[in-house]
């Protein structure tokens, strides 16, 4: 029975996220269009609402070009991995607050629930970068792809430590790795007010983790054509986008749960609060896209290793000290 429920949940999550990815592209084009005094998609359907469906259908019938020199098995594996691991991270994300059933059981709105949710999500996010790395390796010596992957590797080693260290402060305060327990610990005041530095560091690291502007170094269009995706076409390229957009959803949900109190909030029901916060983070991504210029990758490494890492270590020392002597952490 439990297995059946899990399979049904899994199918629903994958379907919902796939539709979400399609409309996330429409939403981004629309928002970025209005930010740049344009209209954005308008022709296909009402306000261009059918545009993402047309784009998806088109990508199914595109010719699938595989370079002669490509490492064939890895070339097939790379887009699959790039889409699989973000979905694997997304199954641990709750889609709504847990439901307390009449017979004392708790129904979780996530496919996979464990005591170590945060570590599981971090692990899957770490593995998601291998799709991009493999794409560069498999592309048969294409310089653009290879440079893109090289930058992704440099980016991964810089942001991953910051991501984990920034999450460590709320974990220390909640005494748990369980997402529900962390939300529970924020009933009175959200952790963003206790840990403003950790929140800023997390937002910077999460943008680097999803490789979006201003840290979209692996696919910097003006220099690298499409970076690691240069040699991929049709549905294979679409899978990379799937991975990226699902990852944006995962880190947005994680940020709203860990720092903004998840489904806690006044007046409105928890479900509504939770989704307002997630959508705010997704809007933040588009906003940054329309605002910031791109950083060079040595600049990103400087930010991560020379500014954020010492700051986070000091922050953890302070949090630990304050918790040990019983001060309110601020």
């Amino acid at each position: 029975m439990e297995v059946l429920i899990a399979i049904i949940k899994l199918i629903i999550v994958v379907t919902v996220l796939s539709v979400y990815v399609m409309y996330a592209t429409w939403y981004e084009r629309k928002v970025i269009g209005h930010m740049q005094q344009r209209i954005g998609p308008k022709r296909v359907g009402w306000h261009g609402l059918l545009q993402p469906i047309a784009d998806t259908l088109k990508s199914f019938w595109k010719e699938d070009v595989i370079p002669d020199k490509a490492d064939k098995p890895l070339f097939w594996l790379a887009p699959a991995l790039a889409a699989t691991f973000p979905f694997a991270a997304a199954i641990a994300i709750p889609f709504a607050p847990p439901l307390h059933l009449a017979d004392g059981k708790i129904f979780y709105f996530s496919v996979f629930h464990s005591k170590i949710d945060i570590l599981y999500i971090l692990g899957m996010m770490g593995l998601a970068s291998f799709g991009v790395l493999m794409a560069g390796i498999a592309s048969g010596g294409s310089k653009y792809s290879f440079t893109g992957s090289q930058r992704e590797a440099a980016q991964v080693v810089s942001y991953e430590a910051i991501l984990a260290l920034a999450l460590l402060n709320p974990i220390l305060m909640a005494h748990s790795l369980n997402l529900e327990k962390i939300v529970e610990a924020q009933r009175h005041l959200w952790f963003v007010f206790y840990q403003p530095f950790a929140f800023v560091a997390f937002v910077i690291a999460m943008i680097a983790a999803t490789a979006r502007v201003p840290f979209d170094l692996p696919e910097a269009e003006p220099e690298l054509v499409a970076g690691h995706m240069t040699e991929f076409s049709g549905l294979k390229m679409g899978l990379f986008f799937f991975g990226q957009y699902v990852m944006i959803f995962v880190v947005s949900a994680l940020a709203s749960i860990v720092f903004l109190g998840g489904w806690t909030g006044p007046i409105l029901p928890g479900f509504v609060w939770y989704w307002i916060k997630i959508l705010a983070f997704i809007f933040l991504y588009t906003w940054f896209w329309g605002t910031f210029p791109r950083y060079r990758y040595d600049q990103l490494m400087d930010i991560a290793w020379k500014a954020l890492l010492p700051l986070m270590v000091l922050n953890i020392l302070w949090t630990g000290f304050a918790l040990a002597v019983g001060l309110p952490v601020l």
Binding site: L119, L122, G123, M124, L127, S129, Q150, A154, V157
Partner: peptide
Amino acid sequence: AQFNAMLQIIVYAGAIAVMIVLVMMV
């Protein structure tokens, strides 16, 4: 030992393997 399992993935697969690939790439 789920904690060890996740650390295995985060530290070895996520960080050390990326480091090895980065070294080979540069």
